[in-house]
Every structure is written in structure tokens, then in C-alpha cells.
Design a protein around this nucleic acid. Structure first.
Lengths: 341, 341
DNA sequence: TTGTATGCGTTATCAC
DNA sequence: GTGATAACGCATACAA
């Protein structure tokens, strides 16, 4: 109703007859003020509806109380659980988080990193594109001296890193299928810029090879990121003459797309085709065998590490943490042989 | 490697021998500088790795280039689709968004609003708790003169509002069930502080009444917000002697929890129990009959409206938009009578 | 076309 | 204990 200028400490000074520095001191709970002036200041602040300006504060204090989080897609459970973890830890520290989504775009990633730098965030947590891209912007970021934590490693760039054991996860998924008697196994790859996609696929190939197997090229599907694309692959699978007996999908979202298309085509999982995914997303009724990934914990851990840097609680060397991935067996894989395990 | 102080326009001035105002002018693409000095400035900026300090800029320009978004839970598809819409529009405007999650906590909501005020965001989009809470903090916010848009209406508070027609949605869900021949219908309520929960339930009661029906109190379940709670209700339903023939769940997440528990108990949906939800979340394999809500569009629309205010593209009265909810019939409701429709 | 001075709202360093 | 005053980094109005 009365959008008059925000009151400043100058206004409080005028009102109370005290000096700006006194107001500032009292407001920041510094020692050495008489109870009387203290009360006077507090009352005036209350009365005028004073709200400290954190821009101005940040300008002098060199700290903004904000961090930046750059992820790929907030709509994806993988990332929104990370986000939740980061946010909770930020809140514990009285910090606020800028959320940016790159959407698998290299340019967007760069733009967001620059924006965060301009906003002078105290630190940054980034889930970067890791394949088929350049990393100059990370080296530039590092040169600026602003603390950051990466989800993933970039060779030649030393900083705190967190990773999931995607190779191990891919291996577990493949071995499980093999153990269930599958040999004709397909694979639906994830985004081209995803290191996880690359590692899971590599693990798949390696594990197959160790068993003297190689996937039929027609059973390996290119880079996929949307539910629609996944459903399209599901449709192709449904129509296929010599379908694989199982497919490993880059993540649960893709697995869900494939399963939906399969169901639409009247096929049943796992009877007609076994499916395994990655992420273990919670909100799904299908009993999907999948590889669970501790995204929420990782989000919290990344944020803790970032605040260790920001608050200089740790000055020592960089941390490199790897989180395990764990196969969760449910009912989307058919057991073809009851002999092995 | 060289975390030396960030270069400022003063540094650029020194390096180029020009005045600070010249530097500032060139950097902001103002007219009236010789191509020569322009190049000199740009080169120096490049060379020193100059990054404008938006804190300082905001201090003078009265605009921070940031908006705040306060939602309840980023993990919930309802909210992360809104978030996605808001983010995209913000990005189009060159803005960055602070994301805050209140998690159904009144205190957290207040705290976040205060924090956003201190950070001097240019505007705020809020999905507030609307039931069983006070609204003083909104009136306080309004008095500060910072533009904001609400998801929901607060009586006595004039501002831009966006809403979903939850009553209409609740009616559609109920009528569908009735039309399919169900009369023993249960209801699983959502969070206590949710207006949507209240309206959907009211619509359910009203519609039932119009048909001369009233729900069995044992079939109405109290306020639920987590998947775990929903599963617990599913378990109770499974064990129930005289189960309802259908349940309406506050949202798809609850519906999924109920369905999971039912499936675990060996019951089938819709044969043993029909279920309908709200939200129409994408990543679910179960063919859930649900009420679709245009969250992503609403997110974009709210952001557009906010930017209309911020950029003063519209000075006129407040907008009050209501988005429709639309029943999507799939296969989670059993048709008991083939007579009606 | 370019330079100078001032203010934005704080905090910090001094004196008093 | 409290009060001036100078930063902080930038934009802007006004001179030159």
C-alpha cells in the first residue's frame, strides 16, 4: 500500500538520533552498547519495518549468503533429490540457493556459471555435462577463486568431486541379467553428454564380453533423453521380430517410457521382455528392478563440502568421494534359468 | 590458482587510462563512444577477466535481476513442473531464481519470504500454505511494495493470483466414479494446510450428497502427505472387511502409494478397488485415471505476470486467473454398470 | 566523446 | 559507549 523507499540504517539513525555505525553495530549483535540504545534501535527498526539490504551488506562483507546450484533438469527425480539435499544443508547454514537448469545445453551451462559469478555467489555446486564438451569455463571459474563442488570429475581440474559408481552399477545390472539366464540383452543409452551413460554402457559391454557375449547392434539404442523417445524405442522393441530378452535402460525414466510403450503394445514385462533401470525413483507403481543411487545423500554431502570451503572449516586438499550404486531386485526381470543362483 | 581480488571498473580505468564512467558506459552498451575506446575497454575487460559485480550494480540500479520462488516440495512433480515453467520464463528475461521450499511449514514460509526481502529480489512467486494459517506476513510483504504473484487466493489481499479449479476437479473425479456405478467411495485427504485438499474434498462431499449419497466415515482418511503414509492407508484398505469400491486420492503420489500397498497385499486395481488421483504425473507406468493439472503452463503464466509487474509492462489492476482441471480417464476405475454412459 | 562527483546501504576503522 | 568517515563496486548526472 505504501511502497515508500525501504528504510535504511540512515533512517534509523535519524529517527533515534544515533549514528549509523551504532545502528549497524546493534543490529549485528556486536558487544558494547548500552541496553538503552540497544532497545531504542530495535524499537525503531521494528517501527519502520527495517529490512537489512543484503546487497549492500554483501558489497562490503564479501559474502552474499547465496550459493548456486546448476543441474540439468529439475523435473528429473535424480536431480530434484540432489536439489532437496543441497537446499536443506544450505538452509541449515542460513544460505539461499540459486537454482539453474542447463537442460543438457553446454551454452546454458556456461551462461549460468557466468550469471552466478556476476551475482557473486559464495560457492557453486555443479552437475556438469561431462562428455563431448569442452571445460574451459571450469578452468576460468577456478581462476576466479570461487569455491565449487562438482558432481563428476574433469581431468586436469582439481576441486572437490563427488561421483556415483556408474561403471559398477552397470556391471551389477548386467551381471544380474546374465545370472538370470539372459544372453540377448539390449541397451538404451542416455544423453550423449552424460558420463554416467557412457560408463554404464561400457560396463555393460565389458561384462558381456567377459561372458563371451556381445550385444546385437540392433538391440543397442542411441542416445535418449525424453520420455517420448523412450516410448518410441519401446514401440520399436515391441514390433521387433527377434527382440532381446532383456534391456538395460540408462535410467528409470527411460525404463518407464519403454515399459509404457510395451504395455500399450500388449506386451508384458517381464514375461515378454525384461527391463532394468537406474535411479530407483520412488513414485512408480511398477516393480522395477533397478540400480539405486543415493542422490539425496550426495546432495547433502556436496553442500556440506561446499560449506566447509566457504566457511574455511577445511583448508586441506580436495575431497574425492564416490558413492556406491546398489542393485535393487524387484520383478521386472524374468528368471530364465533356475539353475544359476 | 590466482584468487586475487576481482577486477573492478576502477582497475579497467587504470589499465586503459580512461575514466570509470567511460568504462561503465561502454560495458553497458551505451551510445556515444568512439570505436577506439570501446575496443580498448572491451579488450582490457577480457584481459583482466572482468566480471561485473551485480551486487554493486543492484545497489544503484534498484534491480537485482533475481526473483524468488517459494514452493512446498521440489521433489513433487506438481511443484517441479511449476518450477520448470518459472525458470524458463525467468531465463528468457535474463533473470535468476532463488528456489525455496517451505515443506508445509508455516515458519519456513515466513523465514523464506523474509530472506527474499533481504536479498531484494525484484519479485516473488509463492505457493503459500492456505489453510489453518495466518497471513500477516503477506500483508507485510505487500506493504513493502515488492511485486509478487500467488498460487492461490488470500482473502483481503489484493495481488495477482493464479488458481486451479480444484473444486471442479474434485467434482469431475467424483462424478466419473458415480457414472461408473460406484457409490461406496472413499477419500484420502491431502495436507491439512492445502486449499486444494479442502476443495477437492468439499466437491466430493457435495457431489455425493447431490446423488443422495454420503461416504462411510471409515472410508475417509485424514491428512496425508508422504508416500509412506499413503501406503499405510493402502494397507488398511486392503485389510478392510467392507472396503469401498473406489477411492479418490488427493494426488497421484498418494494414489501411487495406495496402489503399491494394495498390490503388495495381492489386491488388484481396479478389480478389487478403483483409484483416482490428481496431477497426471508423467513418470508412472500405472494407467491411472486422474485429474490433469496444467502446472507447467501455470508456472510460465505466473512468471509472465510477475515480469509484467517488474518491468511495469502492466500497471493496471490485478489478474486473477483460474486454470481448469481435466479428468483423464485411463484404467484404474472399474466400470460397475455398463448402463450409464 | 570523455571525465568528475555523488549516491546506493552497509560495514569497518578510527577517533572522541 | 558512540560518532564520523572511508571504503565496497557501480551508475548517473553533470561538466568539460
Amino acid at each position: 500500500m505504501n511502497p515508500r523507499k525501504n528504510p535504511t540504517i540512515a533512517d534509523l539513525a535519524k529517527l533515534t538520533g544515533l549514528a549509523k555505525s551504532t545502528i549497524s553495530g546493534v543490529l549485528n549483535n556486536k558487544e558494547g552498547f548500552s541496553e538503552e540504545t540497544r532497545q531504542k534501535v530495535l524499537k525503531a527498526a521494528e517501527q519502520l519495518g527495517y529490512v537489512p539490504n543484503e546487497l549492500a551488506r554483501g558489497l562490503t562483507s564479501k559474502s552474499t549468503g547465496s550459493i548456486g546450484l546448476i543441474i540439468k533438469d529439475i523435473t528429473n527425480p535424480f536431480y530434484n533429490h540432489i536439489t532437496k539435499g543441497v537446499q536443506e544443508v544450505a538452509e541449515e547454514h542460513g544460505y539461499t540457493v540459486f537454482l539453474c537448469s542447463s537442460g543438457e545445453s553446454h551454452q546454458a551451462e556456461i551462461k549460468h556459471m557466468e550469471a552466478m559469478t556476476r551475482k557473486r555467489v559464495d560457492g557453486l555446486i555443479i552437475a556438469p555435462l561431462l562428455e563431448e564438451v569442452t571445460f574451459d569455463h571450469f578452468h576460468a571459474l577456478k581462476k576466479k577463486g570461487i569455491p565449487f563442488v562438482l558432481l563428476g570429475r574433469i581431468s586436469g581440474l582439481s576441486c572437490d568431486t563427488f561421483e556415483f559408481d556408474d561403471y559398477g552399477g552397470g556391471r551389477q545390472a548386467t551381471e544380474h541379467l546374465l545370472a538370470c539366464g539372459h544372453t540377448r540383452i539390449g541397451f538404451v543409452q542416455g544423453p550423449r553428454t552424460s558420463r554416467a551413460a557412457k560408463l554404464r554402457f561400457a560396463a555393460f559391454l565389458d561384462t558381456m564380453k567377459e561372458h563371451g557375449l556381445a550385444p546385437d547392434p540392433r538391440h543397442v539404442f542411441g542416445h535418449t533423453s525424453t520420455l517420448g523417445e523412450a516410448m518410441e524405442i519401446g514401440r520399436r522393441l515391441a514390433e521387433m521380430e527377434d527382440r532381446p530378452s532383456a534391456v538395460i535402460c540408462f535410467d528409470d525414466l527411460i525404463a518407464i517410457g519403454v515399459i509404457k510403450a510395451l504395455q500399450d503394445a500388449g506386451l508384458r514385462v517381464p514375461d515378454d521382455l525384461s527391463v532394468v533401470g537406474f535411479d530407483d525413483i520412488e513414485f512408480n507403481t511398477f516393480p522395477l528392478t533397478t540400480v539405486s543411487i543415493p542422490t539425496y545423500d550426495a546432495g547433502k554431502a556436496m553442500a556440506w563440502t561446499l560449506f566447509d570451503r566457504i566457511l574455511e572449516r577445511r583448508e586441506s586438499g580436495y575431497k574425492h568421494i564416490q558413492f556406491e550404486e546398489r542393485l535393487v531386485v524387484r520383478a521386472s526381470v524374468k528368471v530364465l534359468n533356475t539353475v544359476n543362483q
